[in-house]
Amino acid sequence: MKDIETRGDIELFMRSFYEAMLNDPAISYVFTDVAKIDLEAHLPHLTDFWEQTLLRKGTYRKNVLQIHLDLNDKERLTNEHFEVWLNHFTTTVDKLFQGKNTERIKTIALSVASVMKIKMYPQKH
């Protein structure tokens, strides 16, 4: 298997990843009923984000945290949602790719999920 090297690789991964999530009742409703995403319209934005994050290419300029904070206002994103998301992310990327960038994207995904949870649910002191 090859590593993630191009925008096309990321697009293939994102398409497979979202197909898996949209077929999982534990999380699919967040995309279909709450966010009401149109995958074909959303896919270029997802690809832009990961291309910028992993390959340091592209022009993604949206605030990914704010998008998810707004979503969380509509439907509370739980630890289970994050676990399901990370599980599909890791499983899908491992089915398609292997290498340095493949390992790096999994680490980045864990970091992104962790930061989002911290920002959504700050600890009270």
Score class of each variant (00 low, 15 high):
K62V: 10
N87P: 00
P25H: 13
R15N: 01
T59D: 14
H68F: 05
D3C: 12
R56M: 03
I4P: 00
K100V: 07
E103N: 10
D94M: 15
A41M: 09
I27W: 03
N23E: 07
M116E: 11
L22D: 08
E40I: 12
S16K: 09
M21W: 03
R76T: 09
K106D: 06
L43C: 03
I37C: 07
T53V: 11
E11M: 04
E103Q: 09
K2L: 15
A113Y: 12
A26Q: 14
H68P: 00
I27G: 02
V115L: 14
D9K: 08
I4L: 15
N79K: 09
G8L: 03
L65E: 09
K2W: 09
E80Y: 13
I37W: 06
N72P: 03
L55E: 01
G8N: 07
E19N: 07
V93S: 15
Y60G: 14
V30L: 10
M14N: 11
T6H: 04
L46T: 06
V84H: 01
A20G: 05
F13Y: 15
W85S: 04
G99K: 04
T90H: 12
D33K: 14
Q123L: 14
D9T: 11
P25I: 08
T53K: 08
M120P: 00
F17S: 07
N79S: 08
R76K: 08
N63E: 09
L43S: 02
T91F: 09
K95N: 13
K36D: 08
D70W: 05
T92S: 09
T47E: 05
I67D: 03
V34T: 14
M21Q: 12
F97W: 13
H125G: 13
E103V: 04
D73G: 14
T32R: 12
E75R: 10
R104G: 00
Q98M: 06
R76E: 06
R15L: 02
K117H: 12
L65N: 06
D24H: 01
R56K: 10
H125A: 15
R104V: 00
H125Y: 15
H42R: 08
S28R: 09
L46P: 00
I10H: 02
Q123M: 11
N72A: 02
M116T: 10
Q52S: 15
T102L: 04
L69R: 10
V34D: 04
L86I: 14
V115A: 14
R104H: 02
H88D: 01
N87Q: 11
F13A: 15
V112C: 06
D48G: 11
M1T: 11
D70P: 02
D24G: 03
R104Y: 01
L110V: 05
V84K: 02
T59V: 10
I105R: 01
A20S: 13
I118R: 15
K117Q: 15
I4Y: 10
T32K: 15
R7P: 01
E11D: 05
F82S: 08
A26W: 01
K74Y: 06
E75N: 04
A109K: 07
Q52I: 08
L12D: 08
S16P: 00
L22I: 11
Q52L: 10
I105Q: 00
T107P: 00
V112E: 03
K57T: 04
S111R: 14
R15Y: 00
H42V: 07
G99V: 09
